[in-house]
Amino acid sequence: MDMFYFIVQQSMVFMIPLLIVALGGMFSERSGIVNIALEGKMVMGAFTGVLFLNIFQNPENVSDQGILLLALLVAMITGMLISLFHAFASINLKANQIISGIAINMFAPAFAIYIAIFYLDGQFVPFINQFRIASVPILGDIPILGPLLFQRTYITTYIGFLILAVSTIVLYKTKFGLRLRACGEYPQAADSVGISVAKIRYAGVLISGALAGMGGLIWIVPISSRFGGSVAGYGFLALAVLIFGAWKPMRILFASFFFGIMQTIASSFTAIPFLLNLGIPAAFYSMAPYVATLLLLAFTSKNTQAPKAAGQPYDKGMR
């Protein structure tokens, strides 16, 4: 049973950032803007968030959750700022959405490392990593559910689930969500009833920036005590989760959970006696999440549809 708890706790570490960033990507793509820049936005968010911790973290009280929340806010704002470039190019100038995404992906790590080397004399920005919660008061003592969800956890896990709940409601139960989806499917129709396609798409891209920036910081906090300008391809994996999740919140949850479990098996199979005894080389465990995703997609994607207007600049004349 301990092994089971361990796997679930570990999976959260991989799953939550993927979930949040993929949900971010969802808001952008459902509004009609392809977002290949998730990786770059994560890097920017992680960078400024960690830099904030590096400067303002109080060595006397390192496990202060408040400072982490503030750092998350910083990361969100950074993600939104960098998103503005993506939004401006793809909405106002109607430029190719992939190109500006590539530019952001290239800019972000270069910028983070450049600044770190110049001002901190090293590629890495260190921070004190003491944010793990051993056990949530009261809730952590519940049998089964306690160890599963409320022990050895991070506050970011709950933020992730909160974002999932809010995203689902916003997308399906609000006027804004309906308009967002309309702009991604058939912007001409949305425009014809007086909705500003540009405004809605700006909102979509900015939300995606905020969530991706935040996701970047959430990715780095549990796994390291320094940030070196890379999120190890998690932005691209989030994109994969988004597509695997068919651009729908609950399926994204499932996709990120699946990927989280697979990553846990890949990274800690040596701690799982059953898998260790199989004698399969480590490289194949590392490959497993990607192979499994590929196979699953091959069998489930036949009928999934991307948002129809994603990737196409909105042209009023096309009505």
Binding site: L93, A95, I99, A103, I104, P109, F111, I113, Y114, I117
Partner: peptide, 21 residues
Amino acid sequence: SLELVNIVVAVIIYFCAFVLV
């Protein structure tokens, strides 16, 4: 650091997206 080159190339690519426009 060499990273400056990546910043320059990134900026150039960003504006390349405008070239077609």
